[in-house]
Design a protein around this nucleic acid. Structure first.
Length: 635
RNA sequence: GCCGACGUAGCUCAACGGUAGAGCAGCUGAUUUGUAAUCAGCAGGUUGGGGGUUCGAUUCCCUUCGUCGGCUCCA
């Protein structure tokens, strides 16, 4: 008997009955050693299972996410193997492949340090060189328990206990090393061509802070040395663009021991901040928003009413005024609710779009603070939209349009995610379904691709999140649109309907930048500090060649300032090359070199920070070009 | 918060039990300079704070503050 399978090139192939994925895989890898795994009907298959009639079989290499995951997962086993050889008493946790590499968690008798990693790497290299076959073994639950009990691997026993009844339990073996693992894996250890251990960190068992802290070893693996090097140089590039480093060098902001998580913005940072805010105000006015400002500190009773006192207390800062408890606001919504509730509304007034650049304070754990990305005070570009239930769709569509407009300006690609009802949710299931459907419908109508995050919504309503992708491929959640049915209830907000009766409005919370601080940090890294002209703290600097040109330079500066441009002049007693170097390091978009020649012809020699020397031209031409670049927000 | 590492001049780093040193930046002077660093000189630090061990601490120990890398894209 024989069976037919469909190969990825669409052809049918005939094999004897009982042929397994492994057989096929062996056959294919002998032709192409880059192949990593077999997919049957689109899923990673258990290599030992016989193929069934008309299975669709395809092969993946490292360049598919699945292939890379298999490859790195095998690397993580090699890591664990090496660790067990060097530290036989170490207990194994879990060791999955992650986005850019892999890790493995261990509990060591005595904690190891980063200095121990080279020895582990060396042992891994040995294992790779040994080209140990990696074998799958399926077994009964009892047998698996027996194996890991004998080895005293209590974390593995815990994992086995947690496996569903009906699942096939499997282990992967290479030489004396065995690990509980669903697989699949590479054929033999020698297939891992290039790897590096990249870090050592603490990690709670199963990510739960109540559990033991294990030691996690991070690593990455690639099919060639070149690709590993390339990845490592990407990390270097990311380091160069680190907003904390650039923030100091370009005098954008500083952080001080006196205010952990409370950033100080310097003049250069403020210029960019104001441009971002001005742009935001303009666009929001055009989109029909009003703007408010609510107090930083408000009475505790308000926070009890909003539910923050019950749900958010450990993140809030408190103070006392005249013997009464006050709270430094962690969110802007309660204030906005008071503004809405301060007058009667007709259905004709809605929607009311109320925006606020609101400064909030949140007590984040000290270990999570990170430059401007993760702080304890930040400015949300918040807005609350109060509307009739029938207006939700149009409002959500409007916000999506606004976000798209913003993100394009900065040159960001983005991904959209829709989060649905979490387990601990308020409100009826019908209401949730209806709201979620509306959000989904808007996304579909706008033909926006999105991913659904089941159960990831806020407790008060479903939401749409926008994840921006920066130039290094990292993603950051910025914009969010959240429907809220709870707040209007808690604050007894109403509007008078056509029927003359009181009705409940619906509220949307939304942010575009998210946190101004974090968006700023993201921009610093995205542009590597070289801000487009509309944002640059200094848009042009004038460089006189000698003292003779100072008067002429003065005239140029005066003119540029009158045109509203941000300019400086470098009148120091230095050579042109020196001044240019300095301006380049400050990433100033334009340098205007003026010497005797320029003064004579009434021109300026224009140099662009990336394009270099652009030759001489008249000042008016330069001004109009630069102004155009600024108004068009050219990237 | 927890685990680990780190904290020396404005910045980047050295010295690692015998009273701290370099480069860059800064200041002064000379040089009048044409598209990424002119030369010379000067100044700069209770080595994060507190405590301990020692004849002696930047170095060893404790403590505190801060910074950095992490803290389930589930065997």
């Amino acid at each position: 008997m024989s069976i037919k399978v469909i190969l990825d090139n669409g052809e049918e192939a005939v094999y004897p009955e009982g042929t397994t994925c492994m057989d096929l895989y062996r056959e294919k890898t002998s032709e192409n050693s880059d192949l990593i795994a077999v997919l049957v009907d689109g899923k990673e298959c258990d290599l030992n299972l016989p193929l069934i009639e008309r299975s669709a079989v395809s092969f993946v290499d490292f360049d598919s996410p699945r292939g890379a995951a298999v490859y790195r997962h095998s690397a993580s086993h090699i890591l664990a193997h090496a660790v067990k050889r060097l530290y036989p008493s170490a207990k194994m946790g879990i060791g999955p492949a992650i986005e850019n590499g892999f890790y493995y968690d261990f509990e060591f008798e005595k904690p190891i340090s980063a200095d121990d990693l080279p020895a582990v790497e060396a042992e891994m290299k040995k294992i790779i060189k040994e080209r140990k076959p990696i074998r799958r073994r399926e077994m009964s639950r009892a047998e698996a328990e027996e194996i890991f009990r004998a080895k005293n691997e209590h974390y593995k026993l815990e994992l086995i206990a947690g496996l569903p009844e009906d699942v096939v339990i499997s282990c992967y073996e290479q030489d004396e090393f065995i690990d509980l693992c669903a697989g699949p894996h590479l054929n033999h250890t020698g297939m891992v061509k290039a790897f590096k251990l990249t870090g050592l960190a603490g990690a709670y068992w199963r990510g739960d802070e109540h559990n033991t802290m294990l030691q996690r070893i991070y690593g990455t693996a690639f099919p060639s040395k070149e690709r590993l090097e390339h990845y490592l140089s990407m990390l270097e590039e990311a380091k160069k663009r680190d907003h904390r480093k650039l923030g100091r060098e370009l005098e954008l902001f500083t952080l001080h021991d006196e205010g952990p998580g409370f950033p100080f913005l310097h003049n250069n940072g403020m210029v960019i901040w104001q441009e971002l805010a001005d742009f935001w105000r303009r666009e929001h006015r055009l989109a029909g928003y009003e703007e408010i400002k609510t107090p930083l500190i408000l009475n505790r009773s308000l926070w009890e009413q909003s539910g923050h006192w019950d749900h958010y207390r450990e993140n809030m800062y408190f103070t006392k005024i005249d013997e009464q408890d006050f709270i430094v606001k962690p969110m802007n919504c309660p204030g906005a609710m008071l503004v809405y509730g301060s007058k009667m509304h007709s259905y004709r007034d809605l929607p009311r779009r109320i925006a606020e650049m609101g400064i909030v304070h949140r007590h984040e754990l000290s270990g999570t603070l990170h430059g401007l990305m993760r702080v304890r005070t930040f400015t949300q570009d918040d807005a609350h939209i109060f509307m009739l239930p029938g207006q939700i769709k149009a409002e959500v569509a409007g916000i999506i349009g606004l976000m798209d407009h913003f993100y394009r300006i900065f040159g960001f690609d983005y991904r959209v995610e829709l989060s649905t009802r979490p387990e601990k949710a308020m409100g009826s299931i019908e209401m949730w379904d209806k709201a979620t459907n509306i959000l989904e419908q808007v996304l579909k109508d706008k033909e926006i691709a999105f991913k659904i995050n089941e159960g990831d919504g806020a407790f008060y309503g479903p939401k749409i999140d926008f994840h921006l992708e920066d130039c290094l491929g990292r993603s950051w959640q910025c914009g969010t649109i959240q429907l809220d049915f709870q707040m209007p209830e808690k604050f007894d907000l109403t509007y008078i309907g056509e029927d003359g009766a009181k009705h409940r409005p619906v509220v949307i919370h939304r942010v575009v930048y998210g946190s101004m601080e974090r968006f700023f940090a993201l921009l610093i890294e995205h542009y590597g500090g070289a801000f487009p002209a509309w944002l640059a703290p200094v848009q042009a600097t004038v460089i006189p060649v000698t003292e003779r040109s100072h008067t002429y330079a003065g005239q140029i500066i005066k003119r540029l300032k009158e045109e509203g441009l941000r300019v400086t002049v470098d009148e120091r007693n230095e050579k042109v090359g020196y001044k240019i170097r300095e301006a380049q390091l400050k990433k100033i978009p334009y340098m205007l070199v003026v010497g005797d020649r320029e003064a004579e012809n009434g021109e300026v020699a224009i140099r662009h920070r990336e394009k270099g020397d652009l030759g001489s031209g008249n000042l008016d031409g330069f001004i109009s070009d630069l102004k155009k670049e600024i108004t068009e927000k050219t990237i």
